[in-house]
Design a protein around this nucleic acid. Sequence first.
DNA 1: TAATGGGATTTTGTATACAGTCCCCGATCA
DNA 2: TGATCGGGGACTGTATACAAAATCCCATTA
Lengths: 219, 219
Amino acid sequence: MADNTLGSNHRPLRDVVTTELRRLILEGKLTPGERLVEDRIAERLGVSRNPVREAIRVLAAEGFVEVTPRRGAAVARLPSDEAEELFDVRMALEGLTARLSARKVTPASSARLRAVLDSARVAVDEGRLDQVADLNTAFHAAVAETAGNAYLSLVVGPMLRRAQWVFQQTAKHRAPHSWTEHLSLYQAIAEGDEAEAEARAVAHVEAARRSYLAALADG
Amino acid sequence: MADNTLGSNHRPLRDVVTTELRRLILEGKLTPGERLVEDRIAERLGVSRNPVREAIRVLAAEGFVEVTPRRGAAVARLPSDEAEELFDVRMALEGLTARLSARKVTPASSARLRAVLDSARVAVDEGRLDQVADLNTAFHAAVAETAGNAYLSLVVGPMLRRAQWVFQQTAKHRAPHSWTEHLSLYQAIAEGDEAEAEARAVAHVEAARRSYLAALADG
DNA sequence: TAATGGGATTTTGTATACAGTCCCCGATCA
DNA sequence: TGATCGGGGACTGTATACAAAATCCCATTA
């Protein structure tokens, strides 16, 4: 093999390739419908086709890639109404997550949530917007962890990644990160108020939907 | 290669292997924690290691298999409380599915639902219990399709498979298929009554939870 | 001009080869 | 006796090779 363009010594190449391809898709460097030719990807990343094939299977299972037997893989096309669909699913699942979190919150998990929020506030103040996106994800992950439902986390993680992608694809700009809403959600969770936590999570998604529709209207 | 023990000419071997391994796991032929040695699986199915590896990645993404780098794959172990967790997620998602189905139902989709229910009734009457399980899955899939939310379907399908698996693993007997409840859910959907459809779907899952707890108590 | 046919090219599917790592097990030593 | 240190087998990670299918291109023909 030529040389590993991606550095990274011990992590299996298949994971590296998976992460890299997912990043390219999420950032829009690979656009929906674009074919993923194994040879080209392999050569570009300096690996053989095998890790690439395995990465493609994983991304297909996550819904980012569509593979047709004997005709190869392509970046998934978005149904035009997928964004709307996702908002419905998000409301159901993020509402559930918030409710369970409020039910099971502990001082330790509460502290973790607050820590993420604090980091986010600092990042916002200092204008590090790329980190804000990651912290957004981290906050949702922390809430999911607090809920203590492993299967829920398994589902919610990919869903949020997809939501972020779909939003960017259709509305052509980044999702706003409303930290005041996150803070309010955190407070309800910390107080163990299940109904309020669920309501605020749903409201949070509703706000995202409005923002999405507004962005669509702008063009 | 020796000879393809699995027949099947045109479908890629990787899909055949995926399906076969998933079947073995769901039926309990492969038990949680059991290692999946690529060589042995490949030899047993009469294929090379490559399709096996790709199948394992897919199953890992679905949560049926856990992969540790450099140490191979094993059938996923169930957290002891995963069944409880799944009931929460099912209530949220199946409730949403039912509500959306009632909102978007058409004469055509209504007919499809009724057709599945009729087949199921016939199967029950004739005592073909294995088909009943498949029809159970088919009914839920049809409801998901009626809901017209592609992402929801993408999530619900794997969830139901996993629920079936978890139920069997922990309670050591098949989930009961309550066709009267399905019928009642169908009626609410067909009438377009969103709230009632959601309530019946949730009640259906609640009933499943009670049945699960009862089975646990029996031992 | 548009449709068709066939061969070259591209690309996927599958198998095989080899290197590196992990793990068990037995021997050695404190 | 118990811990530690190889050594060898088992298994995974990655690369390469080859066969078969799909696609493309262009010449031929109606």
